[in-house]
């Protein structure tokens, strides 16, 4: 087994408001996991716990890559995140953003690599424009370039097609398919088209004890 996410008795509560309790399940390699739920059900919070951005109230998320359980500080190497509350630097161009994130991640960077990645996400010819001049859809495409830059084993997507046109939606489809072959996709959505990709789905509206559908 190359990559696996094991969620064990995961609980999150904010003061007296319980978001979810005792979620336990395993996401196997080469699969797509879809998280469903009404607004405020805790989908984004779950993804943030998974990424190590927010602590859980109880329980744990164990990520295994190449048979090795990751320490919290190792998670960022293997996770790529696209989310509405994640923005890139507007004062830098797309290429400069990618150069910066490659630099802090310690991965090799070249203009060719950046150009290929930007071409792939549909930003051909706009790589040297400052990001604050981009439309919302272009910014969303750039977030995919950022998330895929280090070729993560696990791609975490929160509302993956927000602000995207039909071409962009198809791009997300192809990214999900590609990532399924490479590792795991975990996404939070309520879009029927995206839900249909799920090998496993979990509704946080009914999943107090983590029953998988």
């Amino acid at each position: 087994m190359l990559t696996q996410v094991k969620v064990h008795n995961l609980t999150k509560a904010y003061r007296h408001r319980l978001l979810f309790r005792n979620l336990s399940f395993i996401i196997p390699d080469q699969s797509v996991f879809v998280l469903l739920g009404r607004n405020g059900a805790g989908k984004t919070t779950f993804l943030r716990i998974l990424c190590g951005l927010v602590p859980a109230s109880a329980g744990q998320v164990e990520i295994t890559v190449d048979g090795k359980i990751l320490m919290p500080q190792e998670k960022r190497t293997h996770l790529g995140l696209v989310a509405p509350d994640l923005e890139l630097y507007g004062e830098l161009s797309a290429v400069e953003n990618l150069e910066f994130f490659a630099g802090v991640r310690g991965i090799p960077f070249s203009l060719t690599k950046a150009r290929d990645l930007l071409d792939f996400v549909g930003l051909r010819g706009r790589g040297h424009d400052l990001v604050h001049t981009y439309s919302s859809g272009m910014k969303q495409r750039l977030k995919y370039a950022y998330a895929l830059l280090h070729e993560p084993k696990i791609l975490v997507l929160d509302e993956p097609t927000t602000n995207l046109d039909e071409d962009g939606v198809q791009l997300v489809d192809s990214i999900i398919e590609r990532q399924r072959r490479r590792g795991i996709v975990i996404m939070a959505t309520n879009e029927p088209r995206e839900v249909s990709y799920g090998d496993q789905t979990l509704s946080l509206d009914t999943a107090e004890s983590g029953n998988l559908a």
Binding site: R76, D85, F101, V104
Partner: peptide, 16 residues
């Protein structure tokens, strides 16, 4: 304020 903190947290340890 510009919500770039999440991208930074996902890419690099706090100390650097």
């Amino acid at each position: 304020e510009k919500k770039t903190i999440t991208a930074l947290k996902m890419a690099v340890a706090p100390e650097p």
